[in-house]
Amino acid sequence: MKRAGAAQRLPEPPEGEPGARGAATRAARRTALALAVAALAALPWIGNTVLVQFGISVLLLATLAQGWNIIGGYTGYPSFGNSVFYGLGAYGVAIAMVQYELPFWVGMLLGLGLGVAFAGLLGLAVLRLKGHHFAICTLGLALVMTAIVSNLEIAGGNIGLVLPLLRSEVLFYELALGLAVLATLTVLWLSRSRFGLGLIAIRENEEGAAVMGVNTTFYKVIAFMLSAAFTALAGGIYAYHITYIDPVGVFDVVLNVKMIIMAVFGGPGSVLGPVVGALILSATAEVLAARLTGAASLFFGIVIVVAVVFMPRGIAHLVRHIGPAGWRYFIDNVRTHRL
């Protein structure tokens, strides 16, 4: 108690002035991140095939978590419809390459167009719902899309489509890395732009934001489309990499749940949180699957529950606030959230 009182009487620190020290740490941080990306890019030439395979999967998941972060973390709309954009991206590539024998990048553009256009139309309709209503509505949509695509001849019905085989793990890895970096840079821009502040205002109090001049409908729909863009591109890379897709596989709600868990575990509304969340949870799942096989899901569940109870605001918040409080950070979380 004494400590808390002392902390309150401290004078307020000046708000983030870009002083010489701030600039230096920022430059250092930027260099560290650039080095990390360079090291990741070099991984295929250092690591083995297993590691590269794992890398592709983590990077795609990181992109998905980051995509969800835009609509769920920044704007505050818990979307369960992102798996639809993923499926549309995957089918865009598959249909272009299989049915029309077009090159891969044309398929990516088609998938991107499908995902973004669908997000725009859908957003105008369902982004007027909030909270649970929005979540349930988008969830229903994912199920509907599976049924629709299963009945489309051009999409191969419920049998699915087999794509041409490309044995170049390195290419897929670098593509996935590029996309994850692009998604993260976009979120970084969101975190310090007028547009991103508008989204955060919507999340914090939508009516208040509108009264202060934020065009809430427009901002929400653009955020949804942005989220869909990255999700669809990830779906496109996945389709070409896995070479076979069917409706149940790519319009999978479980994948959407994964995105949410990773983004929330890492820290929704933060820049690096979703990426770190995707990495840690994928690695945990991988290790558990190797060691425990059958009981892996059980332990994975325990990891999630423990995380939600002790650090409900994610790793990003933990890293920033654990410093002086130490282990009491966790106790305080349990207390304030009455768990």
């Binding site: 708000e15 508008g198 009516e207 208040g208 934001a209």
Partner: peptide, 19 residues
């Protein structure tokens, strides 16, 4: 109707940014 998770400065900045 404040934006609870934002700082006081950010709260007022929204007005200046969008008003």
């Amino acid at each position: 109707k404040p934006f609870p998770g934002m700082s006081v400065l950010e709260n007022a900045s929204i007005g200046a940014l969008f008003g």
